[in-house]
Design a protein around this nucleic acid. Structure first.
Length: 830
RNA sequence: GCCAGAGUGAUGGAACUGGCAUACAUGACGGUCUCAAAAACCGUUGUCCGCGAGGACGUGUGGGUUCGAAUCCCACCUCUGGCACCA
């Protein structure tokens, strides 16, 4: 393809200049007009493709735009460098993870530079370097001090392929988030962060995040999964023990015809110690556990259970209710025991039908009386209470709280709230992560590493291939240490931390990345945070964003920061799709930016990426579209060049079939400024902003070809051409910064266009003297009429009725009504 | 199953608060320039009927509200994402 403008010379020139002039280096001493623009820091796993580029380009557009609006912009960048992908890649290539990570960082940095995206590089942070992970370990110690980091033995998610445990959030549909292997359960002693203590606050504060996408907030709320209900104690017959259950459906309590325990129920053995069939029951429960752990992810697993020979008394009606073990009851939620109401819960219904347990209706369908033996399925809607003693006749919705009141009064039960959210499992049996700063001493027990002794360095010479055990156990020099308390021999914790711990606080480190004594400068952090604009992929809607919110709240409570939400505004961009699939190396549909950049230039690739569609939506990449972007930039270049050389627009333009004069151009300039500004202020509507500038360029081409293409009075400084070109350059500056800088300089300006202020529009110039009014008959467009802007409704009405095209429609019928919408249309109803 | 979001030309997409549906771009077709091609520039391009003027239809489907609906309401279909035996 023939090059029509020298982007290959221009782009490196300006990239060098921006670096030299430190355009993107913020001064954080003053937080006046601060604007913290943050992109989720990337994983340095491989070279970036155009899909990744979208994220950085969007961020760069915002940063440059805000700069031109006179804000003090901070845009740092760093690397989320610990973690499995780096380690797995390293194992495959036989390289140490650090070597491969640092090499990837170099490649990616070069790519970012070539894209012309600007960052405050002196603030760069790399999470796998000791000067960073020292503070990740510090963060662990703070949580430990507050009792928010604890160790417990529990059934945890185990990925056999990665040979490590996973957090609940990292198990997707029963599969490992990273490698798609089937996750199994394993009993292990592991470190957890007590995120459940913050469940309510995380939920409540999500309401305050007005500038977050609704769907991200909804996803977080669902994940936290709050439900309100009542804890009920059912006395166990023939003992002084009770069986505690949690239910949200207190209205159905009189319909409980059996109780169900999870197969893992901890007190099961104790409960049935005097039962004859004890062994048989325990065996059956064990069998259910084995099957359920693997099949739990599958839908419609056959209900299974066994009666344990014991009964409880329903405190509401004194009835004797049998206790069963059932495979569908979860140990992790509620108390691991439920009251089962087959008439009004589909799972209980299926179970009761299978084992011929009675079904009793306690909520009747107001539309059709229910009979338990004729029900095809459970009735889960609202209705009228029956078979419930004093509550009969009450709407079930009302009974929920009335029965709860009654239970609290009679001390049968107590209101309680449960969450789906589990504590955050942070131990990993892998090499490439920050070591957990804990020492085990035979005499002193679990001892945290003193802050002064941080960082606990990750040893370099370790066989890091996973074997199901922490690789650090293989390093004697690391494991064997002295107890900080008694100074006797002790051993170190060999697990490393989940990388989501690293990324849960990095936005704070950017503020003072070189700080040696503290993780961040409190004063400056409090002035610069929360982040004004956070940009990243929606795949982090739960994991990273929830963890970061949690850590922020912990640090606030510990007095380290003054704010309790880290990110004021969040933008989640869509993916770039190629051939119907997400770009990935394994699918072989990756579009590499390098080739496109050498062929068309960075500005073209940027412009196309932004023009492809609304940035929050997924978009299909098309190489053809790139050419369109290039064509537009070439048109703009020729336009500006002709003005610079000849002080006119002397370009190849067609015959004057359409006419535009200087006055109209003037109006279009100001309309374009308004449109682009509104698009950027209201949201990230880059695609429509760009199309507005395209329209202005098209108009200038028409103007050039018009018979009356005289400029205003250039000699008196009233050149409309100059005004148009300069407005276009300013408006396009955030999108195509290199070309625009070059033309701005050639137009005779001395300083960078990013030091200029964003253009303002003149309200008086926006409106034309004459406007087109649409004339409708019965809501269908039948004609148009040109009228002065300030025409009265009366005049407009008669003008519309006189219109030739309209006459034939109204001559035969009677006019019933004329609706006039000023400045828009006239609708004649006949 | 539950909770979100989306469905508009051949394609990506536009349409502010209900007021000219399809801006902008891509593709296609025709033309100018050229020995030729590329580039550039100009024109046409929702579907159907009609030589034409013009008309009918048209924003997933069916209904409704309204002078007027892509936009609001009801029902349904399809796709995408999240959650899923959560008591």
């Amino acid at each position: 393809m023939k090059r029509s403008y020298p982007f290959d010379k221009i782009e490196p020139k300006w990239q060098k200049r921006w670096a030299k002039s430190k355009l993107f280096e913020a001064d954080t001493k003053s937080a006046k007009n601060k604007y913290y623009c943050l992109m989720m820091f990337p994983y340095p796993s491989a070279a970036l493709h155009v899909g990744h580029g979208r994220n950085y380009i969007i961020g760069d557009v915002i940063a440059r735009y805000k700069m031109m609006r006179g804000l003090n912009v901070l845009t740092p960048m760093g690397w989320d460098a610990f973690g499995l992908p780096a380690e797995n890649a390293a194992i495959k290539n036989g390289l140490h993870p650090r070597t491969s990570v640092l090499a990837n960082i170099e490649t990616m940095k070069k790519q970012l530079y070539r894209w012309g995206v600007g960052y405050d590089w002196p603030r760069e942070v790399t999470s796998c370097e000791p000067d960073y992970y020292k503070w990740t370990q510090w963060l662990f110690l703070k949580l430990y001090e507050k009792g928010l980091a604890y160790k417990k033995k529990a059934a945890v998610n185990w990925c056999p392929s990665c040979s490590t445990v996973l957090a609940n959030e990292q198990v997707v549909g029963g599969l490992c988030e990273r490698c798609d292997a089937q996750v199994t359960q394993k009993e292990l002693e592991q470190w957890f962060f007590k995120i459940t203590d913050y469940a309510q606050r995380l939920l409540d504060d999500s309401d305050k995040l007005n500038d977050w996408p609704q769907r991200v907030k909804i996803m977080q709320r669902n994940w936290i999964g709050r439900s309100e209900g009542v804890k009920i104690d059912f006395p166990i017959g023939g003992s002084d023990k009770v069986l505690r259950c949690f239910t949200t459906r207190t209205d159905t309590v009189c319909g409980a015809t059996f109780m169900a325990l999870a197969p893992e129920y901890s007190d099961l053995e104790d409960l049935i110690k005097d039962v004859k069939d004890k062994e048989k029951i325990l065996k059956a429960a064990q069998k259910m556990r084995d099957i359920s752990s693997q099949k739990r992810a599958e839908i419609d697993v056959e209900k299974q259970g066994i009666f344990i020979g014991k009964y409880v008394i329903n405190p509401m009606n004194g009835e004797k209710v049998p206790i069963w073990v059932a495979n569908y009851v979860l140990m992790e939620y509620g108390t691991g025991a439920i009251m089962a109401v087959p008439a009004h819960d589909q799972r209980d219904f299926e179970f009761a039908r299978k084992y011929s347990i009675p079904i009793r209706v306690v909520i009747d369908d107001p539309k059709k009386h229910l009979t338990s033996d004729q029900m095809p399925e459970a009735y889960t809607e609202e209705g009228v209470m029956i078979n419930s003693g004093q509550f009969n006749g009450m709407p079930s919705q009302e009974a929920i709280s009335r029965i709860a009141d009654y239970m609290e009064k009679k001390r049968i039960g107590k209101r309680a709230v449960h969450y789906r959210l589990r504590d955050w499992l942070i131990s990993r049996q892998r090499y490439w992560g920050a070591p957990i700063p804990i020492i085990y001493c035979d005499r002193c027990g679990t001892v945290p590493v003193p802050e002064k002794k941080l960082p606990v360095l990750l040893p370099k010479d370790v066989e890091f291939k996973p074997r199901g055990e922490s690789p650090l156990k293989g390093s004697k020099a690391f494991i064997e240490t002295k107890c900080p308390k008694c100074k006797k021999r002790a051993t170190r914790e060999a697990d490393t931390m989940d990388t989501f711990v690293d990324s849960s606080w990095y936005y704070l480190r950017y503020i003072s990345p070189k700080e040696k004594r503290v993780p961040f400068d409190k004063k400056i952090v409090n002035r610069w945070l929360p982040v004004d604009q956070y940009i990243g992929g929606v795949e982090h809607a739960i994991l990273h964003l929830l963890y970061s919110r949690f850590i922020t709240k912990v640090l606030k409570d510990a007095g380290w920061i003054d704010f309790d939400e880290p990110f004021a505004r969040l933008f989640t961009q869509g993916m770039i799709i190629k051939d119907g699939a997400k770009m990935s190396k394994s699918k072989g549909n990756v579009v590499s930016p390098e080739k496109l950049i050498s062929e068309y230039g960075t500005d073209t690739v940027r412009l196309y990426t932004l023009f492809i569609g609304p940035p929050e939506k997924d978009a299909e990449w098309s190489d053809r579209g790139v050419e369109g972007a290039y064509r537009f930039l070439s048109r703009l270049w020729r336009l500006a060049e002709s003005y610079i050389d000849k002080k006119n627009i002397d370009i190849q333009a067609g015959a004057a079939s359409k006419k535009i004069d200087a006055k109209v151009i003037r109006r279009r300039i100001h309309q374009t400024i308004k449109k682009v500004t509104d698009d950027l202020e209201k949201g990230f509507h880059f695609n429509t902003a760009i199309s507005a500038t395209m329209e202005l360029v098209n108009d200038l081409y028409i103007f050039a070809g018009s018979a009356d293409n005289r400029d205003l009075e250039p000699d008196k400084g009233k050149s409309v051409i100059k005004e148009a070109i300069e407005a276009l350059l300013l408006l396009l500056a955030p999108f195509v910064p290199h070309m625009v800088e070059e033309l701005w300089e050639r137009m005779g300006h001395k300083r960078s266009i990013f030091k200029e202020t964003w253009p303002n529009y003149d309200l008086d110039l926006l409106q034309a003297d004459e406007i087109t009014i649409v004339i409708q008959i019965n809501g269908k467009v039948r004609g148009k009429v040109e009228v002065p802007i300030d025409i009265s409704d009366e005049e407009l009405r008669s003008k519309a009725l006189e219109e030739k095209a309209i006459a034939k429609w109204i001559s035969q019928s009677q006019i019933r009504k004329v609706i006039i919408i000023p400045k828009r249309l006239v609708n004649i109803v006949v």
